[in-house]
């Protein structure tokens, strides 16, 4: 009975996903350029946020390395721009991010809590400065040019990567690795003594989440003609997914996607209405959302729903 229930749940989720994919895939046929551009931005952040949640959500390790892998994607795109077809470029970026993340993950195993956050924070700045110096010495330039791809091409690419990210996140959550990651987040020592290869599980998941960050980077790089280390390895790229995940709520995968969509949209409105005050208001929104929505928008909505229903416990 239970098993039947579960397969039905699975097929409902899968069905919804396919419908969503179809709607999003057909959208450029019917609508104007602006919505597509906005959606590219939203999908980009959704990829980064969901990928971040895959590792940091269950394990509780707050990674701020997102910008490092995303920026790596930028540089793969710039270096191989024009010589390699677009899909191959994206895969190459994903593969490079995977390899780099394996190395970084293996190095940082000893660090826990805030030290891991500081390490990943510094990593982004280190990479930024190293690339800056390498470019200065080797190519004697600061930035590079990237061959652009049509808006529709970018849109479909990021859409496909988005669904791959969601699919991977769902598979990991539901597989044995999901349970392993959760138990690592709950009590790492007990997990290790219960037979979980803690090191490998953490590193592999970290690297898997980096794949999608790298791919997103390679895709979005083609939206710009010019990139430099400051654009590619920007700390905002590391912090925003964390905030979006918290904004949306991390209990399931809907939260991070919702958080990314709402946050990007709010940012977009602020940017067009108050270009000078944009960053300031953004900071305030950030602080307020951390302060007043400990469980994210979704948690807030569930809380309101619970109150409307008369104070009983919401079904989990």
């Amino acid at each position: 009975m239970k098993a039947i229930q579960m397969t039905r749940d699975k097929s409902v989720t899968l069905g919804l996903l396919i419908v969503a994919f179809l709607i999003l895939a057909l959208l450029p046929q019917f609508t104007s350029g602006y919505l597509v551009t906005l959606l590219i931005d939203i999908l980009k952040f959704a990829v980064l946020t969901v990928a971040w949640v895959v590792f940091s959500g269950p394990t509780g390790y707050m990674s701020l390395a997102t910008a490092a892998f995303y920026g790596l994607g930028f540089y793969i795109a710039a270096v191989f721009s024009g010589t390699v077809p677009f899909p191959l470029l994206i895969m190459l970026a994903g593969a490079s991010a995977f390899v780099v993340a394996l190395g970084v993950g293996a190095l940082t195993l000893r660090l826990r809590g805030v030290y891991f956050a500081i390490f990943t924070f510094a990593l982004v700045l280190l990479v930024q400065n190293v690339v800056l110096e390498v470019e200065r010495v080797v190519t004697q330039t600061r930035g590079r040019f990237v061959e652009t791809v049509s808006t529709e091409g970018v849109y479909y690419a990021i859409l496909i990567v988005f669904f791959l990210t969601i699919l991977a996140a769902m598979l990991i959550r539901r597989s044995r690795y999901g349970l392993a990651l959760q138990s690592i987040g709950e009590y790492e020592e007990a997990a290790a003594h219960s037979g979980i290869n803690v090191v490998w599980t953490k590193v592999l998941t970290f690297a898997t989440s980096a794949v999608f960050m790298g791919m997103a980077g390679a895709i979005i790089a083609t939206r710009r003609t010019y990139i430099d280390p400051y654009i590619a390895f920007n700390l905002n790229t590391s912090f925003l997914p964390v905030l979006m995940a918290m904004f949306g709520g991390m209990g399931n995968l809907v939260g991070p996607v919702l958080g990314a969509a709402l946050f990007t949209y709010i940012g977009e409105i602020l940017l067009t209405r108050f270009p000078d005050l944009y960053m300031l208001i953004f900071g305030v929104v950030l602080i307020v959302s951390i302060l007043f929505m400990p469980n994210g928008v979704l948690g807030l909505a569930q809380g309101v729903w619970r109150k409307m229903r008369g104070g009983g416990h919401a079904p989990s």
Binding site: R176, L179, S183, E186, Y187, A191, S194, G195, I196
Partner: peptide, 17 residues
Amino acid sequence: IFAHLPTVRNVMVGSLF
């Protein structure tokens, strides 16, 4: 223990891994 996981899941970590 894995405090936020259901009891049976705690034990399942052992039998699975």
